[in-house]
Amino acid sequence: MVTAKQQPNLARIVMQDILHHKWLLLVAGLVLANAVAVVYTSHISRHQTSQLSKLQQDRDRLDIEWRNLLLEEQSLAEHSRITRIATKELDMARPLTNQEIIVRLP
């Protein structure tokens, strides 16, 4: 029969071995921390890349809208269009030379 005193305590042997090689435990912890940091950085990078892509699409959409508004403004401000609206819709006409009144400021 083997008594309790003669049996090796496995937990104590493992702990002694771990304490004997502290630097390996430290290196393993640093490797694990580095792996977590890489995963987190990759996640943030992908999120920011996605956000940048959305912002660029918004910029392009707004640029197209701005160009369309400029074209619309130019077409609405054409002299021929203004003259046509003034004569047809508002019954306006260009005054004759003898109907012109010149106002002079003092």
Rank of each mutant, 00 (worst) to 15 (best):
P106M: 00
R12G: 11
L70T: 10
R104I: 05
T83P: 06
A28W: 02
W66Y: 08
H21M: 02
E72S: 05
R46E: 14
Q74F: 00
R59G: 14
A11R: 06
H21Y: 05
L25W: 05
I101E: 15
L25M: 12
H43A: 08
W23Y: 11
R61M: 12
R104K: 10
L71V: 09
H79L: 07
I101M: 08
K54H: 11
E72L: 00
A11Y: 03
R46Y: 02
V27Y: 04
Q6W: 00
L55M: 11
D17M: 01
L96I: 05
S75G: 04
R81N: 06
N98K: 09
A77E: 13
D60N: 06
E100A: 01
R67N: 14
L71M: 11
A11F: 02
W66M: 08
R61T: 14
L30H: 08
I102G: 10
V31N: 12
Y40E: 15
A4V: 07
D17P: 01
A35G: 13
L90G: 05
H47D: 13
Y40L: 11
I18K: 08
A86K: 04
I13F: 02
R94Q: 13
K22D: 10
A37T: 14
M1G: 14
T87F: 00
V36H: 07
W66G: 06
A4C: 03
S50I: 01
Q56G: 03
D63Y: 00
V38S: 03
Y40R: 13
Y40F: 06
V36L: 08
L76A: 12
N34C: 06
H47E: 15
R59L: 12
Q51L: 03
H47F: 00
S75N: 14
V39C: 07
R46Q: 12
I18N: 08
R61V: 12
I85W: 03
E72T: 07
Q57H: 06
V103D: 12
A93Y: 09
L24V: 08
R84M: 08
L96V: 09
R12H: 10
E89Q: 08
I85Y: 07
M1K: 08
L76R: 13
I18P: 10
W23S: 15
V38Y: 04
S80K: 04
N34Y: 03
N9W: 01
L76M: 12
H47I: 01
Q7K: 05
L70E: 15
V38M: 06
H43Q: 12
L30C: 12
Y40W: 07
R59S: 15
A28G: 10
A35Y: 07
D60F: 00
I18G: 04
N98L: 02
E65V: 01
T97Y: 04
I64S: 13
Q99I: 02
S50T: 10
S53D: 11
G29H: 05
H79S: 13
S45C: 02
D91F: 00
M1W: 05
I85K: 11
V14H: 07
P95L: 00
S42I: 02
W66I: 08
K5W: 04
E65F: 00
S80F: 00
R46W: 02
T49F: 00
N9Q: 07
A86T: 09
I85N: 14
A93H: 13
